[in-house]
Amino acid sequence: LGPKYVGLWDFKSRTDEELSFRAGDVFHVARKEEQWWWATLLDEAGGAVAQGYVPHNYLAERE
């Protein structure tokens, strides 16, 4: 699936296409579209919880 990303700060969605998340949440990014990335929010087991657009500057690649 490629690298995983972690949320740096809490983010509250403003549209139906955006995905709310908390700092520390883990994502798989499917598409990078300039300022907004289409991402899947993952649970602790790595299963998909939700999908939506997230601001790229709120995520960091997980080491």
Results as ranks from 00 to 15, higher is better:
Q51S: 15
H56L: 08
A50L: 07
E34R: 11
D25C: 07
H28Q: 11
F11V: 02
A23E: 07
G7L: 08
D25S: 08
V49Y: 06
G52S: 01
K32T: 09
G7N: 02
W9P: 01
A50Y: 05
K12M: 13
A39T: 02
F21L: 01
A45I: 09
V29L: 03
F21V: 03
D25Y: 06
H28S: 10
L1G: 12
K4V: 15
H56S: 15
L59Q: 02
Q35F: 15
L19Q: 00
L42V: 07
A23S: 07
D16L: 10
R62A: 15
E17L: 14
D25L: 07
L8C: 11
G2Y: 14
Q35D: 12
T15E: 07
W37I: 04
D43R: 02
R22T: 08
L8H: 02
Q35Y: 15
E61P: 15
L41V: 04
E44H: 10
G47L: 14
N57P: 02
N57S: 09
A50K: 10
T15Q: 09
V54F: 03
A48G: 08
L19E: 02
Y53Q: 05
G24M: 04
V29A: 02
E34H: 11
L19W: 04
W38N: 00
A48S: 10
A60Q: 13
D25Q: 07
E18V: 14
D25E: 03
W9Q: 08
G47V: 14
D16R: 09
A23W: 05
E44W: 07
A48H: 08
W37R: 00
W37K: 00
R31E: 06
V29H: 02
G24E: 03
R31A: 07
Q51M: 11
F21E: 00
V29I: 09
D25T: 05
E18R: 07
D43L: 06
E61M: 13
E18G: 11
K12F: 13
S13V: 01
A50G: 09
L59P: 01
W37T: 01
R31C: 11
A50T: 07
L59N: 02
Q51C: 10
N57V: 06
A23T: 05
P55L: 07
F21M: 02
A50C: 06
V6L: 06
A50Q: 08
T15A: 10
E18Q: 15
F27P: 00
V54Y: 03
V6Y: 11
A60D: 06
A39F: 04
Y53H: 03
N57K: 08
N57D: 12
T40I: 15
Q35T: 12
F21P: 01
W36A: 06
E63N: 12
K32F: 09
S20C: 07
G52T: 02
G2N: 12
A60K: 13
L42E: 03
H56T: 07
G46S: 05
W36P: 00
S20N: 05
L59R: 02
G52I: 04
P3G: 10
W38Y: 12
V49F: 06
F27G: 00
D43Y: 06
R14Y: 08
W36T: 05
E44Y: 08
F27C: 07
G47D: 14
H28R: 10
Y53K: 11
Y5R: 01
R62C: 15
G46K: 03
T15D: 08
V54H: 03
G24I: 04
D10C: 11
F27R: 00
K32V: 05
E33S: 09
L8T: 02
L19R: 00
Q51H: 12
E61I: 15
R62L: 15
W9H: 09
H28C: 10
R62D: 12
G47Y: 14
D25W: 06
R62K: 14
G2T: 13
R62M: 15
H28Y: 15
H28A: 10
Y5C: 06
D10T: 06
E61N: 07
V6P: 03
G47M: 15
G47R: 15
W9D: 03
Y58K: 03
W37Y: 08
V54I: 05
Y53N: 02
R22G: 04
V29C: 05
S13Q: 08
E18H: 12
T15V: 09
G2D: 11
A39G: 03
W9C: 15
T40N: 04
P3A: 12
Q51P: 01
H28N: 08
L1V: 12
A30I: 15
K4T: 14
S13G: 15
R62Y: 15
R31L: 07
E44A: 12
A39D: 00
V6R: 03
